[in-house]
């Protein structure tokens, strides 16, 4: 066995490998840096008051209170929009994989959904607000839910679609051979077998909805009160961060960092929870 000699070609191999490792380290350390920045600046300002109270008078000048209204508002908007998007997404994703037989049409619809995925949320936000102006509606929780649902709709359909595509054809054929209709296969077999993946898709869309700021800026509005009705303005966590950071008072900005920390934790919990839940649910599928 001869040791490889250090030719120009081997040197190129070594150098490029090191450069690629360097790029990987750069990307990973940037992520580390972001997490560390948010934790190191957010955690010290995080108090129980922050997560248990609504803003009191003079909150934006450094007086007491918290952002409970925004946390709840974000959760309401996330849940509401996910629910709304789910009602539309699930039938579409199932239909796309059960009934739309021509691959040509399937591919066209997938292409459209992929294109829609990237439409900036500020466009939906502006659209929502101009529609509300036309009908004389105020900013409200309901408007926020509807617009965020529009933003996450293509994401959810496409994520579900990717899951349903992996449905084993054997199972479908076995069910059809027993005399079931395709509707019954979709409803009773596909839905159960693919449940873990669908849950992940739903939670991913929820995570996206809860963190989006540009779409709720005009549609859900902002208020210091707790969200109580579908028809009143509702605060959201991303906007709470934005508004606290735009004040000149350091104490308020500190709380803005803490709010960003809360939002990050919320999104990470959803993101990691999605993986765990999907894994836990896969016990009930046919392997």
């Amino acid at each position: 066995m001869q040791r490889p000699t250090l030719t120009r070609r081997n040197l190129g191999e070594m150098v490029m490998k090191r450069i690629m490792q360097g790029a990987l380290v750069l990307v990973m350390s940037t992520l580390g840096l972001i997490v560390w920045t948010i934790i190191s600046r957010g955690l010290p300002s995080l108090t129980w008051e922050m997560v248990s109270q609504t803003p009191k008078g003079g909150f934006y000048m450094g007086k007491g209170g918290g952002v409970l209204n925004a946390i709840l508002g974000s959760i309401y908007i996330g849940l509401g929009s996910t629910m709304l998007a789910l009602i539309v997404s699930l039938p579409i994703a199932l239909a796309l994989n059960t009934y739309v037989q021509q691959t040509r049409w399937q591919e066209r619809i997938r292409l459209m959904l992929d294109v829609l995925w990237g439409i900036p949320s500020i466009v939906y936000g502006a659209f929502g607000f101009t529609v509300m102006l036309t009908f004389g509606l105020r900013a409200s929780l309901l408007a926020g839910i509807v617009i965020v649902a529009l933003v996450i709709l293509p994401i959810m359909i496409r994520a579900m679609d990717e899951v349903l595509r992996r449905m084993p054809t054997d199972l479908t054929h076995a069910a059809l051979a027993l005399g079931t209709t395709r509707f019954e296969v979709a409803r009773h077999v596909v839905l159960r077998q693919m449940l873990p993946g669908l849950v992940t898709a739903i939670l991913l869309a929820f995570g996206r909805g809860i963190g989006d700021a540009a779409s709720v800026l005009f549609t859900a509005g902002y208020t210091d009160r707790m969200p109580t009705s579908l028809f009143s303005p509702t605060a959201t966590l991303p906007l709470a961060v934005l508004f606290q950071l735009s004040t000149p008072f350091e104490a308020v900005r500190e709380r803005g960092y803490a709010s960003a920390f809360i939002l990050t934790i919320l999104v990470l919990v959803v993101s990691i929870g999605a993986r765990w839940l999907s894994h836990a649910l896969s016990r009930y599928t046919i392997k």
Partner: peptide, 10 residues
């Protein structure tokens, strides 16, 4: 999955 506003804070 990190929300845009968190990148903004960073």
């Amino acid at each position: 999955a990190i929300p845009p506003v968190v990148y903004g804070v960073w």
